[in-house]
Structures are given as structure tokens and as C-alpha cells.
Design a protein around this nucleic acid. Sequence first.
DNA 1: CCAATAATAT
DNA 2: CATATTATTG
Length: 390
Amino acid sequence: MMINLNTKANVYEEKLQKCQEYIDALEEERRKIQVFKRELPLCLKLVTQAIEACKQQLTFSDGNEYNFHGQSECSEQTSSEGPVLEEFIPIKRLYCDDEDQLCKKPKSNNNEIGSMNNDNKASKNSDWLRSAQLWNQSPDPTPKEVQYSPKIEQVVEVKRDVNGGAFHLFKEKKSQGHAHETSGGGKEVGAAASSSAETGESSGGGNGKSNKQEKEGQSLRKQRRSWSPELHKKFLNAVQQLGGSHVATPKQIKELMNVDGLTNDEVKSHLQKYRLHTRRPNPSTNHNNTPQRQPQFVVVGGLWVPPQQHNSFASTSVSTSPPPATLSNGICAPIATNPTNVQDASMSSKQFFKNPISDDHVSHSEGGGGVSNSLVTSSSDTTTASLPAH
DNA sequence: CCAATAATAT
DNA sequence: CATATTATTG
């Protein structure tokens, strides 16, 4: 008898302990999502409720030992809230799964998404945050609501004049040594995270599914991609490496840039514009003796600078000779001098390649292969410059 | 309303 | 992939 009681008590103890552990786990969980309480208010609430419920179970269970379905209650709550949460599918999947699991919710919807590794939530969180990309910065001054699901993106018309801001920002940014790409990305994660990401390709292979709304295909044009200076810089680098805008092919460029979420079409389009602009931006200005050949600006390490300046610090002898002279005797001597490719830059278009950015070799450590864009890069490009082509 | 520029169609 | 056209945005 006593033995029996003893074991019973033991079992009970054990259950109590388990319950306590469960509560602990829940609390830890809550602590984790505390950070996202704005984004996941319901989730937080849910967990809190669960904790309370379990605690109550603990206290009450003193009297009636066996109503140990603390969990059942839990699941009840979950299920009750479940429907409400349906609208926040992504969140639920991402963050509330754990609870579902813990609660051993009977219905346990094993969606295909279930394949998602539920393991380290922490890393998942960061992943989620990391998905922010450098070109679409959502300035969204009101962080309170983040759009998690790309599906409702059309609702978020918000302001997309962000670019302007970005540009200014970069302009001001004298970027010293450090790569703003990474650091910036990391630092601004919070802000960037609120971005709705374009069509939702998202990074880390989140949803491979084409989330094209099955609505009328016409209505959704892809979100305009804003070519931030950073992005454009990468583009330039890629183009340079490939030996000029005319030989570079969109696909190659895209791959060289190694920017995820960037599509061929986007690169193509940008390349098109780039070519247009590099070709003969402003014929009228060119009425000097050396027509189109002599660039008004040369690019140095990604910088557009007036030739004089460039010469001044770039070279010694030839520099003094004015463009016309060089043309008469030699072919674009100055250009040759300048190792960096001289994209014919006569474009006077206001903004296209106005180069506020001073980023010499900021260019990274990207996985795609080191890009040394600096002066040493492609002297081969001089060929491009030298041959008038068109 | 126009120019610029990105997306899409050819 | 290159161009042409169309849509969108400032």
C-alpha cells in the first residue's frame, strides 16, 4: 500500500516537475518573442496565457491531483485563438508552432510548411531579419506595423520615395574604410526589416513558391526595383569585370553582382538604361573639336570625376596635355593612363551616374568572387574606351 | 504634363 | 539577349 502510494506520489512529483519545466520553457519563449511584441502581439499574449494557465494548474493540482490535463487547457486556448490567428499565417507558422507543438495540439496541422525546421528559433529570427536587403530600404517611419506577409503587399502602398532619402544618405556618407554593405545591413536591420521586400523572393530560400497572386496577372507589376547607389556600384563593378557594358551580358552581371533577389530582367533593364546613357547622352554639349571621344568624366574606382582632377592625382606626364592634343597624336592617351575603364561618360543626365558615392574598394568580400574594382582592375577596358565603335 | 526609369513585350 | 514598348513615378 505504502509502496503504491509512494510510487503514485513519485509520479505526481514527476508530473509537477514536468509542468514546471514546461512553464520555464514557455517563459523563456516569451522572453524571446518579447522583442517582437509589436509584431507578434497575439503570440506573446498567447504564450503568456499559456503560462498562466499552467501555473494555475500547478497550484490547483495540489487538491485534485489528477486533473493533469493542463495541456488540454492549453490547447483549448490555442485552438480558441487559432482562428483569429489564421490571418497571420506566416507568423503563426514561424513563431507559434512551438507552442502548438508543446501543447500537442491534436489537430496539429502538418502543412507542407511543417518542413520548416523548428529548431533554433533564434537563428530563425535573425534569418528573418536578415532578409532585409540593401536596396529596398523602407523608411517606414512607423515601425509599428511590419508587413510580414508579402501577399498583402498591395495593401501597403506606403511611400516609396525612399530612394531619394537613400540617395542623400549615401551622398552624405563618406564611407571610410568600412564596408557599408555589411555593416549597414547589419546595423539597420531593424529599419530594413520592415521593408516589404519586393515580390517576396526573400532570401534564404524562404518561399520558393511564386507568390504571384492568382488574381489578375495584369494588376501586379513587379515592385519597382530601386537601384540604390550601392546596388549600382555593384552593377558597375560587375560590368567592369566583364569588360565593359557592351560585352557584358545581363546574366553574367547578375551573377557577378551576387545580390540575391535580383533578377535577370532587372539587370537587363538597368543595363539598357546604362547603355543608353553611356552612348550619347548629350551630343549638343560635344561641339568641341573632339567630339564624342573625349569623356567629360572618367570613372576612377567607381567615381565619376572630371578628367583634370583625375589626371592631377592619377598621373604625371601625360596629364598636362589637353584632350585635343592627345587625340591628335595618340589614341586617348589619358584614357590609357587611367587604368580604370573609362566608360564613355558624357552623360550629363542629372542623376544617373552622378557619383556621390566615394567608395573605393569598398567592394567586398562577397562570396561571388573578389572584385577588385579599383584602379588596377581592368586595364583591358581601355580598349573599350579606345575603340570608338559607334 | 513631362522626363526619367523600371517592367514587360517582342 | 537586345530592343521596343508600356507603365509608373517624381
